[in-house]
Nucleic acid binder design. Structure first.
Lengths: 235, 235
DNA sequence: TTTTGTGGGATTTGATCAAATCCGGCTTGC
DNA sequence: GCAAGCCGGATTTGATCAAATCCCACAAAA
């Protein structure tokens, strides 16, 4: 218990935050889990349970939960408990529409700024993403996919845009869970995963072709949206 | 104290929220003050002082503050205290760039959905905005301006977009304070305030002219951005 | 059978207290 | 004179406890 606590604390010191608050560990842990779709939609997160998991008292947990509620990553029951938002096609479409708007703009800005070194880094990530596809599980793939996207968006150099996009990915959490299940099944079935849009994006960036880069990222978002639609239709 | 408590509690029941938490009162009060630019940039908000203002203990205040920190409406000192973010031209431009992206998209979507009743409501708000210009202070004007904008963005029917835009306006808080001072000076000087873009927007909406509506809202944002630039240059 | 009411358990919310941390000014030494 | 170190007040953070609220199951009546 003590050992675990110190480990988590040290993780946060990497960010060289001013004061290491243990509520921050709970917060970032939960946030990461949510964004990666490790929780089922509708799952109720009680403070006592989380306090047990993170080995702390209720106080840091309740404040971490409230922060996530403020970001709409969780919603509160009339009871006051926090719950992972339910799946909903309209909401999915709404989020994806906002994603297209923001991420397309970010990529367009980035396309006019990227250096060849940047593109090189991006290619590395894309390569790792392809490699992982066969070996590891769905979580690893989604995680690497996320790294690709945010590395890319970072080149736009807008912290405001970046933060807005992150909240959208956070809202996608419950849907990502569905995707990870589906990807897992595809991997088991020996079906290679499609990630061709990443190459399209890189090509467009290399040519500083703003329009094509924007179209490529839009296609990427629309593809996952479409996949989620079929998954939702099946269930 | 008891009387005050019950009054605040009843306010929150208007929103028919499930459980009336007094921390929500502190939160929305602070948020409103910030968005309207009632606090100076760099001002330190200590929990004890706010607890005194809102007539409660420290607990609700600290959780309200943390929620606002999560929305980047406040930032934490190494000490842990909350402080209103400092003014910064680069950040202003970054926020405004994001505002153009999001608010332009919202208006474009809205332009294809508005009914004539909607436009009528919008005209009423614009009229009130003009009326107020001479009579009341800057806060009233900015408040009415905000109502106009969000009424408009609401017509897009996207809760996701709406929420993102709100966080941007929240980030504009410290800059709005500068504007309110300037507006106040203009009012005292007998100089009528310019709000012509509102009419342009309404005209474009009436014609369901998506492009023109988007250009009009962009012009509106750029205008306040330019005004803030001159204010910042002066000081 | 369906609805209404009630009671107990579970859960959050707010208050108070102890501990950790930080900031300011002061002293001390060079 | 000036910089480094240190102490005390101020402030937040975490823990624990009491109170308010809600949910759920069971029972009783129409």
């Amino acid at each position: 218990m003590r050992h675990w606590d110190e480990m988590q604390r040290s993780i946060n010191l990497d960010a060289s935050e001013s004061r290491a608050k243990i509520q921050d560990n709970v917060y970032s842990g939960l946030r990461e889990s949510l964004i990666e779709g490790r929780y089922d939609a509708g799952q109720v997160l009680t403070m006592a349970a989380l306090a047990n998991v993170y080995g702390t008292s209720l106080m840091p947990v309740r404040e971490a939960l409230q922060r996530l509620v403020a970001e709409q990553a969780l919603i509160v029951l009339p009871n006051g408990s926090a719950v992972v938002p339910h799946i909903n096609v309209e909401r999915l479409d709404d989020i994806c529409r906002a994603r297209v708007i923001l991420e397309r703009s970010a990529v367009e800005i980035a396309s006019q700024k990227v250096s060849s070194d940047d593109i090189h880094d991006l290619e590395n990530i894309a390569a790792q993403h392809r490699e992982i596809a066969g070996l590891e599980g769905a979580y690893a793939m989604l995680s690497m996919n996320r790294r690709f996207h945010f590395q890319l968006y970072g080149y736009a150099g807008s912290s405001t845009l970046l933060q807005l996009i992150e909240t959208l990915w956070l809202s996608m959490g419950p849907y990502m869970r569905l995707m990870s299940r589906d990807i897992e099944a595809q991997i088991k079935g020996g079906n290679p995963i499609y990630a061709g849009t990443h190459n399209d994006i890189i090509d467009a960036l290399r040519a500083h072709d703003t329009l094509r880069a924007g179209d490529a990222i839009t296609a990427d978002i629309r593809a996952t949206q479409a996949l989620l639609h079929t998954i939702l239709a099946k269930s």
